[in-house]
């Protein structure tokens, strides 16, 4: 328990950061027209793909002969990239369609 408290104590800065980020997220998202809910969800989905940065760090840490870590890390990088790239491309495709305003007809 003491260790746990120590951990929190040492990471207080991060915890403040965390709380403020939560409030920021709430603030940013409020008052979104329903029309944008799906693209927004999709865009947010792409943003949490930032987890791929963690996968890269894991790979950088891994010893070159630790094949298990390298394999699992490789999988993590692939999946994280899928999340990022796929997420942003899908969102862009959705939003592209909103761009086409009536001008054409």
């Amino acid at each position: 328990m003491e260790q746990l408290l120590n951990y929190f104590g040492e990471n207080m800065e991060m915890i403040y950061f965390l709380i403020l980020a939560v409030l920021l997220g709430v603030e940013v998202i409020s008052n979104v027209p329903a029309i944008l809910h799906t693209p927004l969800m999709s865009g947010a989905n792409a943003i949490h793909g930032v987890v791929v940065v963690g996968a890269i760090i894991v790979m950088l840490h891994a010893a070159p002969d630790n094949y298990l870590a390298l394999t699992v890390g490789f999988l993590a990088v692939v999946m994280g990239t899928l999340n990022v790239v796929g997420g942003f491309v899908v969102t862009d495709r959705m939003l592209e369609m909103f761009k086409k305003k009536p001008k054409k007809s």
Partner: peptide, 20 residues
């Protein structure tokens, strides 16, 4: 990892997703 980009990105989506 004390990685701020992951922290911001993740938490933003966490709270925004919950609101949504």
């Amino acid at each position: 990892y004390g990685n701020k980009a992951m922290l911001t990105g993740g938490i933003l989506v966490g709270s925004a997703g919950t609101i949504l």
